[in-house]
Structures are given as C-alpha cells and as structure tokens.
C-alpha cells in the first residue's frame, strides 16, 4: 500500500504544500463541504486515499470538478491538512495531460445567458482546462 503510486502521491503532496499525515480523521472537511452531495469521493476520503497512494479512483472522480475552492474545509480543518489543496492538486494532475480538458470551448456558447458574468467562464476555464 505504501509504495503504490508513490511518485504521483509525492507529486500531489508536493504541489499542494500540505501534509495528509496530519489528518486525525475528524471529518470536519466533509461536514463543512457545500458540494458534498455531488461528490463520489468526499473530501476526507481524498486525504486518506492520497496518503495511501490509492489515487487512481480520484483521478476519475466527479468530485474534482465539484470542488469550487470555497476554502471552507481549508479554513475549518483543525489539523491544517487543508483538503481543498489536495483536491486541487489531483485535478491539476488530470487536466495537465494532453487532451484532458474538462470543458470544451465549443460547448461554452450553449451554456451562456445574457447576465452570466465573464468571471464564470474565466474561472471555469482556469479550473477545468489547461
């Protein structure tokens, strides 16, 4: 278990700048997450699965596009594990691959309406695409 996917695990931990070993399994992140209902893997599972190198399921999860970096888990985590940063790092390791963009520019016009602020598109493109 320890060595499984260890290079990806180390990379995710490095770019996130957090330490999943500090987690004491309190569940504060999943208690506080406003996107929990749309997630197939909950924030606390990200922490544990990354630490254990069980990252494959996370790469294919819906959760990485549900987290909006509202920083609630990061603010309230009593152990400074800051799960949002780990989820962000997993998402980046997916979308940084060629052709792995989540949002296709061609699909965007259909999503627009008259009042939609520019920042919605800018933010989504930055979060979902490389």
């Amino acid at each position: 278990m320890q060595n499984k996917n260890s290079s990806l695990r180390d990379e995710i931990i490095r770019i996130s700048g957090t330490n999943p070993r500090k987690c004491m399994l309190c569940g504060k992140c999943s208690a506080t997450c406003p996107a929990f209902d749309g997630m197939d893997y909950a924030p606390h599972q990200f922490v544990n699965m990354i630490e254990n190198g069980n990252i494959e399921p996370l790469l294919n999860s819906k959760s990485i596009y549900q987290c909006l970096s509202c920083f609630a888990c990061l603010e309230r985590c009593p152990r400074t594990v800051e799960p949002a940063k780990l989820i962000e790092a997993v998402r980046l390791s997916v979308i940084r691959k060629q052709g792995a963009n989540h949002l296709k520019p061609d699909n965007i016009p259909a999503l627009l309406d008259e009042d939609l602020p520019q920042q919605a598109i800018v933010s989504a493109m930055r979060k979902y695409n490389k």
């Binding site: 406003p34 996107a35 749309g38 909006l68 949002l103 999503l111 939609l116 919605a120 989504a124 979060k127």
Partner: peptide, 17 residues
Amino acid sequence: ECCGSYISLENPESCTK
C-alpha cells in the same frame, strides 16, 4: 457559505440547491 460560483455553468441544479 458558498453560493455555487461557476458551477452554475455546468450544474445549475447544484447551484440552485
């Protein structure tokens, strides 16, 4: 608490909630 931000683009139901 978060309003849903840019998720409204992809997932209006979640944002509505």
